[in-house]
Nucleic acid binder design. Structure first.
Length: 501
RNA sequence: CGGGAUGUAGCGCAGUCCGGUUAGCGCGCCACGUUCGGGACGUGGAGGCCGAAGGUUCGAAUCCUUUCAUCCCGACCA
């Protein structure tokens, strides 16, 4: 996989903003300069460039495999949803109404002044909403698919784009249009649906940890943060390097809300009619943002080997064409061996930039392993091996290089996970008083484990006072008697607070 | 939608307060040469209605009015 000239277009990539100076600026710079994405002509919309999209494709492939292992299949539903569908589930419409783009006309015409205008005669009888999520159109469809318990379960996923008219956008983290997958399942029983909700949040946890190398906390969302129309929302929460939390994936137990709204009933084993039980779950291109903010440093991206579009880059060091040919021939042989082991290798023999420039460029792009070979190595049978995660270099024998690199890629994957995990542990603080809560939040950030009285009012008050929200009520948090840091009322367990993206 | 800022070459900027030849600089781009083990250098070259529209003036990137766009900080959110 290689991207031709576009890959190299931006050479003014040096001088990334420093992470500590302005994290937002650094992030934005990095996304643009590493060639992942940029803003487009349309307000709030993002162009995902080939390098960024290649990461997304790798994510898609891995997730798809995991979905198939859990019995799911892909399908596709329309982009446009009749407005009336949208209003059938009261909480759902309330949650999304404020950010919907709406199609009102189906034709343009000449305005007589050389321009073009919306043809007022072509007004749609019923406006169409560009999907912000697909529960409604899907449940309208499922109605026709389900008559009996024998039709269940339905385990369908779709890869799609959705649109939410956000006030303020950030590349990958919040754009008006974004790519995601959304699973929508239909079940015979409450228990089965709940089990599915847990199963899928665990798929996401596994994906985050094993592929993104990002540790996450799995837990329930509080009532305030729950998906509009869900009875329960499970989420994975990740911690970014600036101490803010990022919701990286959600899995919703929808109860019978959508089945009732769209009148989807089935004849049960006992012959009685009942409404279908539902779940939905999704992750988006936001995961790329998570990847960037979890691992990168001031030299650029640090991509986990499993998701890096290029895992190894080889750079010849030479004077003159003859040396280039010799070094390249040797690199080709090594590359072939690595490719045979399933490693994605690129040899960068560009003659118009120097090797030092290439080193910097591949660091910016987060390529996990770099191999450089010059005449000295050629003579000695060695190669210089550099790893992106630690920025360390060593000269190693060409003999056995493939084994070494394959093992190293695994080691890098494990190492960046370990690094992110220890960062998160450091940044997770148990707090027992309001003073401590406020102080830790301001001075340190990160996850705060605190007691909460369980009321939405208290959560709201804490949010107003500090901008921190309950990220989740962790599944594995032990029961423990305490008092709410805000209200002083009794509490049975700690929840995770943080400021969030 | 509130508060703040910015629009000058592909990118980053200076010039604007205090109007005055042909609008500059760095990077990038093109050509040739020298280079090449951590972001090379020399010489030559191309590239601009100074965001847009009005106005003031002998004269506007610069002053005034309007407008559009973008970014940052809030509210909203995967």
């Amino acid at each position: 996989m290689w991207f031709g000239k576009a890959f190299f277009m931006a050479k003014e990539l040096k001088d990334l903003t420093k992470k500590e100076d302005n994290y937002s600026q650094w992030y934005n710079d990095l996304v643009v300069k590493a060639g992942l994405a940029e803003y487009s002509a349309v307000r709030g919309c993002m162009v995902i460039k080939p390098y960024g999209y290649a990461i997304w494709e790798k994510m898609q492939r891995a997730l798809d495999d995991m979905f198939k292992e859990t019995g799911h299949v892909n399908a596709y539903f329309p982009l446009l949803i009749p407005k009336s569908f949208f209003s059938r589930e009261a909480k759902h419409v309330e949650g999304f109404a404020k950010e919907c783009a709406v199609v009102t006309h189906y034709r343009l015409k000449n305005d007589g002044q050389g321009g073009i205008e919306v043809d007022p005669d072509a007004r749609l009888e019923e406006e169409l909403v560009i999907r912000p999520t697909s529960e409604t159109i899907i449940w309208n469809t499922y109605k026709g698919w389900i008559q009996s318990y024998r039709d269940l379960p339905i385990l369908v996923n779709q890869w799609a784009n959705v649109m939410r008219w956000e006030m303020r956008t950030r590349l990958f983290l919040r754009t008006a249009e974004f790519l995601w997958q959304e699973g929508h399942t239909a079940h015979e029983t409450r228990e089965e649906a709940i089990e599915e909700t847990y199963r899928m949040v665990n798929v996401y946890r596994k994906f985050a940890e094993e592929w993104l190398a990002v540790p996450v906390i799995v837990g329930h969302k509080s009532e305030n943060e729950r998906f509009a129309g869900a009875e329960d929302t499970l989420a994975i929460e990740a911690l970014m390097q600036d101490g803010k939390a990022l919701q990286a994936g959600t899995s919703h137990f929808l109860g019978q809300n959508f089945a009732q709204a769209f009148d989807v009933q089935f004849a049960g084993r006992d012959g009685k009619l009942d409404y279908v039980w539902a779940t939905s779950w999704g992750v988006s291109t936001r995961l790329i943002g998570a990847l960037i903010m979890a691992h990168s440093d001031d030299n650029g991206l640090v991509l986990p080997p499993k998701l890096a579009p290029q895992q190894v880059v080889m750079i010849p060091i030479y004077k003159g064409e003859e040396e280039l040919a010799q070094v390249t021939a040797r690199l080709e042989a090594l590359a072939a061996e690595l490719r045979g082991r399933g490693v994605n290798v690129k040899i960068d023999a560009r003659d118009n930039v120097r090797s030092g420039f290439k080193f910097a460029e591949y660091e910016l792009r987060g390529v996990p392993v770099r191999l450089a070979m010059g005449p000295r190595d050629l003579a000695a049978g060695t190669v210089e091996l550099a790893r992106r995660d630690t920025l360390s270099k060593e000269t190693v024998p060409q003999e056995g290089l493939a084994d070494r690199v394959v093992a190293l890629l695994d080691e890098i994957q494990a190492n960046i996970y370990a690094k992110a995990l220890s960062f998160r542990d450091e940044m997770t603080t148990r707090v027992d008083s309001w003073d401590e809560f406020v102080r830790v939040l301001d001075e340190k950030g990160g996850f705060l484990l605190a007691h909460w009285d369980g009321t939405p009012e208290t959560e709201e008050a804490i949010k107003d006072a500090t901008k921190a929200t309950i990220r989740c009520i962790p599944l594995d948090s032990p029961e423990e008697d305490g008092v709410c840091v805000y209200s002083g009322k009794p509490s049975k367990r700690r929840v995770v607070f943080a400021r969030a993206y």
